[in-house]
Design a protein around this nucleic acid. Structure first.
Length: 1021
RNA sequence: GCCCAGGUGGUGAAACUGGUAUACACGAGGGACUUAAAAUCCCUUGCCCUUACGGGCGUGAGGGUUCGAUUCCCUCCCUGGGCACCA
């Protein structure tokens, strides 16, 4: 027999598996499973021993599933964009693509040397243009659906490095590289609207099988809190201000309103500047604000520092519950980014307010007393004594207390529970119940080279052209009174110029008059024109377009009149109060001759909105407008309304307009994707993205008007690339879509996802966000990407410290594979302990599992064709290993196999049958050795073409058990008995046992407790 | 400060649903083989008392519930992780 030379065996089978393509996912899966690892960032340092831990865990599971007849998709790829490669490029003047590709080669070689069963035909790399084309496509998808927007934002800026820093790169207010002070700078940045999904990202956590701590972290990150929005009137010499001034606050404790003794505005609060003339100590206030803004985030949020602030003298707020005047402060402990940037301060029941009130000697009024008197004891809870309730500003013994209880000092609400009072007090002061989230929108701009370019273009020429929107009303001009003003406001906020003409003789119009009136608006050919034509104005607008030949950007006909209107429709109008001559006029509109084919040519896009319950316009009018080839959308309650029940908003119509349209932002047309990273780039940091330096990249022609324009020079956060990669694996070569619906439906969602807990919020939240967006837009039919998630723990160095070059405790997987073999490495990492635990590496430990594999190797000498004893243990082990794999408790599965092998070793012979059963359960863990021995036993076909063994339930049962005998709960002795022994039989046996007798002499038996199959406990006195 | 996870031999760890605490492995000690070493194999190995038989104590600390607690409850200590003036 040859020696166990792992190098030869492992190379041999890796080659064989690759050649036979046994790991490729089938084209048409019947029973599918998608088993996924978090793809690695291929760093120059090469694979870390932590990587194989998760990879082996999923590999064992994948191989186990395949042996059980599942079709498994188990892919691997590279999260290749990122900062380290770029920083290296700056230092060494080597292009990041070169270093990245080199790292990928190393990673791939190292991963392949571990015998992991990946389907390499589906390998992907995020820095590949064929991949990032679709990352850019996703950006455009979000942009077109109003989920990507640009706005000014504060970023961390290092003046010495001339660049933006990620939050992680700011250490104690300093740049981690040069240790210069980091300042906040306002820059135009792109954001994704994650906040729009806050509630669903929170609620859907209940539907997925993830570790509870991870779910909790996401919950805290989203930070939902229920409360109310309340308004406080401001009083003072407000002659300079026209309208009554109010301060809006968000509070989770409206029940404490009677305890509000002052208010605080954040230094950035807009009201402060507006009230400049009314504030008597303006200089002092201004100085404070300037000081606060000079502080960086770290200083501002340093909890150790004392509270600071300045009162706004000359103005006071009115507590809406008590109608008493209270002072207003500006203080930097109130944040501008959360809630309304202003708070009502309740020093009696909020620790921060309490601290502030103490410092500024403000009154403290207690309004809630704890439910139970026990808790109110001052010693127990630090509470004031019950007798001290009331105005406590002078009571130094009072300690702030946060919690719910019974209302006091709150007028008519006294005696209610604080929970009841929340709603009632909010109602009384006219507040609104509201939900707030801590979650912020995702800032995706990076002023960096090595990332996917953001596919947007800035065109000055387009920016100067404000698109015009013409809103035309129908009969009697109702729309002008109800939903048009709302639409006008919305569109103007988005940069449109909006016109709402009043058309002549609105109650008895003629189409000729209306067309003439529209012509008098003097639109020009070069105008970018949008038209929303409601009801009766639809034919007039069509005729107007036909006659003038104006090109139209978008034509939206809302509930247009048409010849299909029936007598019933007209009589409905009459019932609603329309005059007979008005109806006659309307009928004439339907007889007008319009060349709809010409209108179709002139308008780039045409949409018809109908409602299925419109009393005047039947759905059938759609066919009256058929030549327009319009897109039709059907609603409920969106067609007509009468004077009494006005339709005041029409949110759906906003989807027809893109936001921020006057900024000159032009998305790169899809056909022009990918926007490639340029090669002619100097990486020297200048404060702008290196892409600005590339003339050929930066300067482009506007795809809309052809004028000279500039490309967006920022790239995307790498988390954008990793938010959708699990889709790409299903269809990695697709040139037309990010992945076809057919392939996505074959495999997704992911059944098991394994990776480090460091991605608990960012990656996992963003991936969920992308999936939900795709779901809403109809691309996919599931809303959660990863059904089951498990985290692998960290592997520390042998010294129990985090592995790092500087500590010199790094274990290189290449060395381990060379010295002990991939099978040993895999087995050891699984044997170390539970997958999710943090545990130190031990070279002695890997020696142990190698010894085990050596023993397994030697078993071939003991094989005999005759039946031998030991079947029982084999079947018990199959049961144990099967259950443990299902639960990913690989450490105990391996220990069970060790026990079995120890048993084999003690026996003189091992039957071929039993050895084969064992090899099958060993195979997922140590595939090379199992495969080699399987061949040695005379098999032609791979062990992975076999099926997972079933244990014999009869053989697993024990006939005899050890019955533990306890006296007063202490284990004293035990006896061997048949497994199904009854209580009476057991008692008889136990009470005659000499040892038991010795414990019973002179004692009285109080009772006997019998646990079938386990123990008997005699309680004596 | 708040929220999680965890604390079991010299070490990594095991223990089903409240039922023999320390499986499996490492390390250590002793022995066999060997001229010798390595490798391999066998025995011992939680701590304390005892030559032994046997007994006592033991799952971070203290208390509680229970016939019985590593497991459930309360208080506290320590380690790791997350959040951090979020009203």
């Amino acid at each position: 027999m040859d020696k166990y030379i792992h190098q030869e065996i492992e190379a041999k089978w890796q080659k064989y598996w690759a050649k036979e393509k046994i790991n490729q996912a089938p084209k048409s899966p019947q029973k599918k499973k998608y088993i996924l690892d978090m793809f690695p960032y291929p760093s120059a340092a090469g694979l870390h021993v932590g990587h194989p831990e998760g990879y082996t865990a999923t590999d064992i599971y994948s191989r186990y599933l395949r042996l059980n007849g599942y079709d498994v998709l188990h892919p691997m790829g590279w999260d290749a964009f990122g900062l380290p490669a770029e920083n290296f490029a700056i230092k060494q003047k080597v292009h990041p693509q070169i270093t990245t590709d080199k790292s990928v080669e190393t990673f791939r070689r190292q991963i392949q040397s571990l015998g992991l069963s990946y389907d390499w035909s589906r390998e992907i790399k995020t820095s590949d243009p064929a991949y990032y084309k679709w990352t850019q496509w996703f950006f455009l998808l979000l942009y077109k659906n109003g989920l990507a927007y640009k706005k000014k934002a504060k970023v961390n800026w290092c003046n010495s490095c001339q660049t933006v820093l990620a939050n992680e790169q700011v250490v104690a207010g300093q740049c981690e590289r040069c240790h210069n002070e980091v300042v906040q700078k306002d820059l135009e940045q792109w954001f994704f609207k994650v906040t729009q999904y806050a509630d669903r990202l929170l609620n859907d956590l209940d539907t997925i099988d993830w570790p509870e701590p991870i779910k909790l972290m996401q919950k805290n990150w989203i930070g939902r809190s229920e409360g109310a929005e309340l308004e406080f009137a401001v009083r003072g010499s407000l002659s300079a201000v026209r309208e009554p001034v109010k301060i809006k606050v968000f509070t989770t404790r409206p029940d404490t309103l009677f305890g509000v003794t002052y208010m605080v505005l954040a230094p950035e609060h807009g009201l402060i500047n507006n009230l400049k003339l009314a504030i008597k100590n303006w200089e002092e206030v201004e100085q404070y604000i300037k000081l606060a803004q000079k502080k960086n985030e770290i200083e501002r949020t340093d909890l150790a520092k004392a509270k600071t602030g300045v009162e706004l003298k000359g103005i006071r707020a009115i507590n809406p519950a008590t109608n008493k005047e209270i002072p207003i402060f500006v203080a930097d402990y109130v944040l501008t980014g959360y809630g309304t940037g202003a708070i009502m301060a309740v020093p009696a029941h909020d620790e921060r307010d309490y601290e502030f009130a103490k410092k500024f000697s403000l009154p403290i009024i207690e309004v809630i007393k704890p439910e139970s008197l026990m808790a109110a004891s001052p010693i127990e809870s630090g509470m004031a004594s019950p007798g001290a309730y009331g105005h406590l500003s002078s009571d130094l013994a009072y300690k702030c207390w946060v919690g719910t209880g019974t209302m006091i000092n709150s007028g008519e609400f006294d005696g209610l529970t604080s929970e009841e009072a929340k709603k009632k007090i909010t109602q009384k002061v006219g507040g609104q119940l509201k939900t707030q989230y801590k979650l912020r929108d995702w800032l995706v701009s990076r002023q960096r080279y090595w990332g996917a370019p953001i596919p947007m273009i800035y065109c000055d020429h387009c920016a100067q052209k404000k698109p015009k929107v013409l809103l035309t009303h129908g009969l009697n001009a109702h729309a002008n009174d109800n939903w048009f003003p709302w639409l006008k406001e919305q569109l103007e906020n988005s940069g449109y110029e909006v016109l709402i003409p009043i058309l002549p003789n609105a109650s008895v119009p003629t189409i000729a008059e209306w067309v003439a009136a529209l012509q008098s608006l003097n639109f020009k050919k070069e105008d970018k024109i949008f038209i929303v034509a409601h009801s009766l104005s639809a034919p007039a607008v069509c005729q107007y377009i036909q006659v003038t030949g104006l090109p139209i950007e978008k034509l939206i006909l809302v509930a247009p009149t048409g010849p299909s209107q029936s007598e019933e429709n007209w009589s409905n109008m009459r019932t609603a109060g329309a005059e007979v001559n008005s109806i006659e006029a309307a009928k004439h509109f339907n007889q007008a001759k319009i060349d709809l084919v010409r209108v179709k040519k002139l308008a780039k896009e045409i949409v018809i909105y109908l409602s299925d319950n419109d009393p005047y316009i039947p759905l059938a009018v759609e066919k009256d407008y058929q030549p327009l080839g319009a897109r039709v959308r059907i609603f409920n309650n969106r067609g007509h309304s009468n004077r009494r029940v006005g339709m005041l908003s029409f949110p759906e119509i906003l989807e027809e307009f893109s936001l921020g349209s006057n900024s000159g932002l032009v998305p790169v047309p899809e056909k022009d994707l990918p926007v490639l990273l340029p090669d002619d780039v100097d990486f020297k940091p200048t404060g702008e993205s290196p892409l600005v330096n590339s003339k050929k990249f930066h300067n482009v022609k506007c795809p809309v008007c052809g004028a000279p324009a500039k490309r967006e020079s920022d790239t995307m956060d790498t988390f954008v690339c990793s938010s959708w990669y699990y889709f790409r694996y299903t269809d990695p070569e697709n040139k037309k879509e990010f992945a076809s619906q057919k392939e996505i439906n074959k495999w997704l969602p992911v059944d098991l996802y394994v990776g480090g807990a460091e991605h608990a919020v960012l990656h996992l939240m963003y991936a969920r966000f992308f999936t939900k967006v795709l779901y809403d837009l109809g691309y996919i039919n599931f809303a959660e990407p990863f059904l089951k998630l498990r985290n692998q723990g960290m592997i520390l160095g042998e010294d129990g410290q985090k592995m790092s070059k500087s500590r010199g405790n790094v274990i290189n997987p290449d060395d381990v594979v060379r010295d002990f073999g991939a099978d040993s490495m895999r087995l050891y990492e699984m044997f170390m302990g539970p997958l999710e635990d943090t545990k130190p590496w031990s070279t002695k430990g890997i020696n142990g599992v190698r010894r085990f594999l050596d023993k397994v190797w030697l078993l071939q000498e003991k094989v005999t064709s005759s039946k031998v004893q030991g079947d029982k243990l084999v079947h018990q082990t199959i049961k144990k290993v099967t259950e443990d794999i299902e639960n990913m408790r690989y450490n105990t599965a391996i220990s069970a196999m060790m026990i079995l092998v120890n048993g084999f070793q003690e026996a003189k012979e091992v039957s071929q049958e039993n050895l084969e059963l064992f090899l099958k359960i060993l195979a997922p863990f140590s595939p090379h050795l199992a495969e080699e021995l399987w061949q040695t036993l005379g098999h032609q076909k791979s062990i992975f073409c076999q099926s997972w063994p079933k244990y014999d339930p009869e053989l697993v049962k024990e006939e005899e058990i050890t019955l533990v005998i306890q006296i007063n709960g202490k284990m004293r002795t035990n006896i061997q008995v048949k497994a199904d022994i009854s209580e009476t039989e057991a008692k008889e046996l136990v009470l005659v046992d000499t040892k038991v007798k010795s414990y019973l002499t002179g004692k009285e038996i109080v009772k006997v407790i019998f646990v079938p199959g386990r123990l008997i406990n005699i309680v004596v006195k």
